[in-house]
Design a protein around this nucleic acid. Structure first.
Length: 609
RNA sequence: CGGGGCGUGGCGCAGUCCGGUAGCGCACCGGUAUGGGGUACCGGUGGUCGGAGGUUCGAAUCCUCUCGCCCCGACCA
């Protein structure tokens, strides 16, 4: 029966959750919303996914949709607070923008048409077209054109931390790739490219500080601009064997790039005189490897044909040297196709080619794209467009013409760095942040202009800069865990200290000592997760290791016999004992030492690139 | 979207091929002992087997349709 009215203060201030005399409620494990799991759900594969589920940080609601339980939400908020501090430090102003947008704004920018089904479109009750925000360039640009009119107002930097929705074709990897997610997006507004350059660099530095403060090891690489358009983009890639992206790193630090855009040095093979074409019989030889073997030539002396159907309907016929792979991102760019899908057998035959024996010689109604490698390599073996036959000594220019000759080859581990020639190291990585040089891509399309000193109007130079906070949290777990569980960097841990009351349940002396420690720690500004449950010590130790607070403090009849508490860092192998009266000071010192390693300043341990 | 796999108490799984009316471990509740690395034992609560339809005397098991989830690929600020 609900009360008719509240009893007078202070009685109502006390609840069943308050212990005698308490004026605030500690976070007791017995009342933590969300319980830890001994076994991870069977469909979780990544360490971060398993541990965040087992530790009661997140729960799935649907494919790529998660609830954040109290522990997980605390971590995310701490990451976001770090982001806020660093954004504010470079002049950012936080604001808030809607997640539902009128489609007309997206039509103005052109993205309503250009972006695929990952943009969710729907109609409201009045049958107006709407979209769910996957990012907010249109809204910022719309705000800018009404709020900004003079060069005197620039430069400007606004940012927001909000939910976005992208209907990914395939969510995967737990929190690494989700459909509903929170990200920080900032948008810079400048009068010219020089100003944009300053803000681009400021973000670069701020991002380095943010990720260092979160304890992430990362590298910055050049990247594709994708659906954002624009001129330049860098990605902040956290190294992880479970990363979706592959990045190529020069061991001398001269170059680092996402495989999607990575260039590599092409050493021109020795010149040869073009020899006459010569057809050879090659039965059952539909792969380049088989061809090289049967004719006993290196892969680099063969030309491979790869067939795509472009979004425009064009048949794209790619010729590349046999030892290289096609990079579809580069190919999309040079062909100006938004999408490329592998061509079907019927489509291939329709242009006069034969799957497995394809050659650009003699095909029709095809857009022929040749990689630089086939221009520079004479006398290659190509297909004969006829089952069971290939042709030796095929030469671009003499035997066929290409519509474009360009770099469309995928860089790979061991390829030479374009700057210094040293062999690349390929690493898997997770993209935790990116910065985009948009230029006037949106402002020109949407009419966001300012007037200069002469009264002339110019489009605003824009940049956009994103960090996925949930992905960053999962990535930290990928980099900071062991067989027992998570080991949070102190800067983003859900609580600073796991306080364990061990020994016989209800032992008055232990409970009193632990209660007192809890109150003293909290009074010192330390966040405590207090394990007061009626559980065996092993259960508490295992849960503390799983949840991963950076410091563990235990009291039990055994430690109290010496007037001590046991202190252990999550990552340490051995515990130490401290007198009860010095426990708070010892915990504070340990936390300070951990914080000192995560100041955001460059560290000698950071890798050169 | 193509290929593969899986949906049985909160979690992990068995049972499905060879229909007979649901089982094990963990968790949870009560109890006894224990009390520093997921302790032991006793006694319990909880599911009608993703959903719909069909075959059958009888369906978790067979058939049809459907929904959802995971993995690989395609795709992806």
């Amino acid at each position: 029966m609900p009360p008719a009215r509240l009893p007078p203060y202070p009685e109502w201030h006390q609840s069943a959750r308050h212990a005698e005399g308490e004026d605030r409620i500690p976070m007791r494990m017995a009342h933590l919303f969300g319980r830890t799991l001994r076994d991870a759900p069977g469909d979780a594969e990544l360490p971060s996914h398993q541990l965040l589920l087992r530790g009661a940080f997140v729960r799935p609601l649907g494919s790529g949709i998660f609830s954040l339980l109290p522990l997980g939400w605390r971590v995310v908020r701490k990451v976001e607070q770090i982001i806020r501090e660093e954004m504010d430090a470079i002049g950012g102003q936080e604001l808030y923008m809607p997640v539902v947008h009128p489609a007309d704004l997206w039509r103005e920018s052109g993205r309503y048409r250009d972006v695929g089904p990952e943009l969710t479109r729907f109609q409201d009750r009045a049958e107006r077209d709407m979209v769910l925000a996957m990012t907010h360039e249109e809204i910022v640009t719309d705000l800018a054109r009404s709020e900004i009119s003079s060069y005197r107002q620039l430069p400007m930097l606004v940012y927001h931390i909000q939910t976005k929705w992208r209907d990914e074709p395939r969510a995967r990897g737990g929190l690494i790739r989700v459909r509903e997610f929170t990200m920080k997006d900032s948008y810079s507004l400048d009068r010219d490219e020089a100003g944009l350059g300053v803000q681009y660099e400021a973000h670069w530095r701020a991002y380095e500080r943010i990720f260092r403060r979160c304890g992430l090891k990362f590298v910055v690489v050049g990247a594709d601009t994708g659906m954002m358009g624009g001129k330049s983009s860098h990605e902040f890639m956290a190294l992880s064997p479970h990363g979706e992206d592959i990045i190529l790193l020069c061991p001398n630090g001269d170059y680092a790039a996402n495989r999607e855009v990575a260039e590599f040095r092409r050493d021109a093979p020795p010149a040869e005189d073009a020899l006459p074409m010569e057809e050879v019989e090659t039965p059952n030889t539909t792969t380049i490897e088989a061809l090289a073997k049967i004719l006993d030539v290196p892969l680099a002396r063969t030309a491979k044909a790869v067939f795509f159907k472009g979004g425009s309907g064009r048949f794209v016929f790619v010729v590349i040297r046999g030892d290289l792979e096609v990079n579809e991102t580069k190919l999309r760019k040079v062909t100006d196709e938004l999408t490329l899908v592998p061509a079907t057998v019927e489509e291939i035959r329709a242009v006069g080619a034969e799957p497995g024996y394809g050659s650009p010689v003699g095909v029709q109604d095809a857009y022929i794209v040749a990689d630089e490698s086939v221009r520079d390599s004479p006398n290659l073996v190509a297909g004969a467009n006829r089952v069971g036959y290939h042709v030796r000594n095929v030469n671009l220019g003499r035997d066929y013409q290409a519509d474009i000759v360009a770099d469309i080859a995928a860089a790979a581990d061991g390829h030479p760095c374009p700057k210094c020639g040293a062999p690349f190291v390929a690493e898997r990585a997770i993209e935790v942040g990116n910065i985009f040089w948009l230029g006037t891509r949106f402002s020109a399309a949407m009419g966001a202009t300012y007037q200069d000193e002469q009264g002339e109007s110019h489009p605003i130079q824009m940049g956009s800069y994103g960090i996925g906070s949930g992905r960053a949290v999962a990535t930290v777990v990928e980099q900071h865990h062991d067989a027992k569980g998570i080991a949070w960097p102190v800067t983003i841990a859900p609580f600073h200290v796991s306080l364990l009351a061990l020994g016989k349940t209800g032992d008055a002396e232990t409970v009193a000592a632990a209660d007192a420690l809890c109150a003293d720690l909290e009074a010192a500004g330390i966040e405590v997760l207090y394990d007061d449950r009626e559980e065996r010590p092993g259960v508490k130790f295992n849960d503390a290791d799983l949840i991963g607070c950076p410091v563990r403090l235990s009291v039990s009849p055994r430690t109290l016999a010496n007037g001590q508490a046991e202190l252990k860092a999550r990552t340490a192998t051995e515990a130490t004992f401290v007198p009860l009266g010095e426990a708070v000071a010892a915990v504070t010192a340990m936390l300070d030492a951990l914080r000192a390693e995560l100041s955001g300043e460059p560290d000698a341990a950071d890798r050169a690139w």
